[in-house]
């Protein structure tokens, strides 16, 4: 009904960028959690003992079959004394770890059997086998896929607003409500997302090509 208010855009931008810093922080730390935990899950999944593999599988199934939003709200309700941003980062990281672990699993399966056998023939310890031979080859194969998960996590950070994390969309909604300028605030937020994720996607595609996928 109203014309697009350019003044509101100018006014909202600094606030949104403030929120964007939180968005980025959540993405970077969440990705870190997902990358490390996903790796741990993938390696644990190959443990010889079912005492390890069965519970890991069960927890993963549970996390994958419930929505991120529910997990966020649930975790915030459970851990009331923990800061919302911390909860957000951990929940995002754990949620995505269930996906990245699959990526790692595929990457590990992609390392030829002969590599494992060469390690055994040289008496390398399991630790050294993983660390020096298997993981460097597996991780190289999965970098592009991990990058794509980082981008999709980035786009899911607005869910954190629900548990009062003051990320960009939280700020946009607040500004929109205070000044009755939702259209401007959300358009701007959308643009910031676009400007940030599009070049990143291009970069990932380039990386993919360079690694020869």
């Amino acid at each position: 009904m109203n014309a697009f208010d350019w003044d509101a855009v100018g006014e909202a931008l600094p606030l949104l960028l403030e929120g964007f810093r939180v968005t980025l922080l959540a993405t970077v730390l969440g990705t870190l959690v997902a990358a490390v935990l996903g790796l741990a899950i993938a390696v644990a999944g190959r443990a010889p003992s079912r005492l390890v593999t069965v519970p890991v599988k069960a927890v993963m199934e549970f996390i994958r079959s419930t929505p991120l939003l529910v997990q966020l709200v649930g975790a915030a309700a459970l851990f009331t004394s923990v800061e919302p941003l911390t909860i957000g980062i951990v929940v995002l990281g754990v949620h995505y770890a269930t996906y990245t672990s699959e990526v790692y699993r595929a990457g590990i399966d992609g390392v030829p059997k002969g590599q494992w056998e060469a390690c055994r023939a040289l008496s390398l310890s399991p630790r050294r086998t993983w660390q020096a031979v298997i993981l460097p080859q597996a991780v190289r194969n999965v970098l592009p896929a991990l990058g794509n998960y980082a981008i999709s996590m980035f786009k899911e950070t607005p869910f954190l607003a629900v548990i009062t994390v003051q990320e960009m969309v939280f700020e946009a909604r607040k500004y929109g409500a205070d000044h009755f300028a939702y259209t401007e605030a959300f358009t701007l937020a959308g643009l910031v997302f676009l400007v940030a994720s599009y070049p990143t996607s291009l970069l990932m595609r380039k990386l993919e090509k360079r690694l020869g996928h």
Binding site: P112, G114, Q115, E117, A118, A121, L122, S123, L124, S125, R128, A132, V133, P136, Q137, R140
Partner: peptide, 24 residues
């Protein structure tokens, strides 16, 4: 020694050879 060599592609030649003596 294997038919398909099975060298470690992520290591240089030298490290392929030193890996086990050093770590084992």
């Amino acid at each position: 020694v294997f038919q398909q060599f099975n060298l470690f592609p992520n290591m240089k030649v030298l490290q392929n050879i030193t890996e086990a003596p050093v770590n084992v």
